[in-house]
């Protein structure tokens, strides 16, 4: 009876941690973390997907390792240890992308190595993985990672459609809007457009949240 119950609550907590990252603690729209990639690489859905896959990989890896070594990590050296663990996964990711997806590696540019200083990853290491079990840390990584991916996709969706007039995923044009694609609003794929889209989306989600609360 007992083990059955623990297993049940365990799996429920696992699911809860995943859902948490998607909505209540969405890293971009609620916690407003990891802004640099959210603004920089969201010019196209392809880039956003590549970046999200990278962040999920690094987040999973670092959360896993850090929760594994949490009992033997000395308090004094913990931040450098976390940074080295994260940097290792980022380097591996960068090498793999360079070997198997060179165009993506090229278009992500310096933002790929910059995953190291993405506040989301170090933040999860410090706030969650360093004091929770391996299983829960994995759930946390999946939730936060997918939540991040979701935000990246939303932002890049608006920027790509408005900025180029069409939507292209993995080289296939899904649809193109007649007038917009010949005269696109290039503003939206330029840096100021990134700030504007994210600002308006933040306001929109806050407005929806306000509606829900009342």
């Amino acid at each position: 009876m007992m083990p059955e119950e623990t297993k049940n609550t365990n799996s429920r907590r696992f699911a809860k941690e995943i859902l948490k990252g998607l909505v209540i603690a969405n890293p971009v729209f609620v916690l407003v973390l990891g802004l640099c990639p959210t603004l920089a690489v969201t010019v196209s859905i392809d880039n956003a997907l590549g970046m999200s896959a990278g962040v999920i990989f690094v987040l999973l890896g670092s959360n896993l390792i850090i929760s594994m070594i949490r009992k033997i990590t000395p308090q004094l050296a913990r931040i450098p240890v976390y940074i080295v663990v994260i940097a290792t996964f980022v380097t591996i990711l960068s090498l793999v992308f360079e070997a198997y997806l060179p165009p993506l590696h090229e278009s992500l540019g310096i933002y790929l190595p910059l995953i190291v200083v993405n506040c989301i990853i170090l933040g999860r290491a410090e706030a969650f993985a360093s004091k929770n079990t391996i299983l829960l840390s994995i759930a946390d990584a999946i939730g936060i990672g997918v939540g991040f991916a979701l935000s990246m996709i939303i932002v890049s969706f608006f920027r790509e459609i408005l900025g180029t007039g069409k939507l292209t995923v993995f080289g296939k044009t899904l649809f193109s809007i007649p007038v917009l694609s010949s005269d696109p609003l290039a503003f939206f794929i330029m840096p100021p457009g990134a700030f504007l889209v994210l600002g308006l989306l933040l306001a929109l989600f806050r407005w929806l949240g306000v509606l829900n609360n009342e």
């Binding site: 033997i72 990590t73 000395p74 004094l76 050296a77 450098p80 240890v81 080295v84 663990v85 940097a87 290792t88 380097t91 591996i92 090498l95 793999v96 360079e98 070997a99 198997y100």
Partner: peptide
């Protein structure tokens, strides 16, 4: 201990990266 632990972590991570680099170098 903190210093030793950090050194071990750096050593492990460098070796791991070396291995991955050897695996991907030809392809790159």
């Amino acid at each position: 201990y903190p210093l030793i632990f950090l050194t071990i972590i750096v050593f492990v991570s460098v070796s791991l990266v070396m291995v991955v680099n050897n695996m991907t170098r030809v392809k790159i």
